[in-house]
């Protein structure tokens, strides 16, 4: 995990452009979406089209131009 710095980096979260501090923790991205990383039933995350295993969430930080997808199961047919 790289330490957070004052530098801001562009990322995309669920299709929306955002600016976050360099080294922004993935768990903070989840909290921004009002998801508790410790109790996130039916939620999964991919960064740059690679799925991040739930047990690895704590170890992941964002890098410049990362594309993050945070999904959850919903009612569907």
């Amino acid at each position: 995990m790289s330490p957070a710095t004052d530098a801001q980096i562009p990322v995309t979260v669920n299709g929306e452009d955002r600016t976050v501090p360099d080294g922004y923790p993935l768990t903070e991205v989840l909290r921004d979406l009002e998801i508790d990383p410790a109790d996130a039933t039916g939620v999964a995350v991919a960064i740059n089209e690679s799925v991040i295993r739930t047990q690895d969430w704590d170890d992941v930080t964002l890098s410049e131009e990362d594309t993050v997808e945070v999904i959850q199961a919903q009612q569907g047919g």
């Binding site: 929306e16 998801i35 039933t41 939620v43 945070v70 199961a73 009612q75 569907g76």
Partner: peptide, 20 residues
Amino acid sequence: VTVAIRRVNVEDPAPESHLD
């Protein structure tokens, strides 16, 4: 039973999934 997979909505976070 089938369920859909959707982005968590940034504007309207954490809609109820009824998965539970």
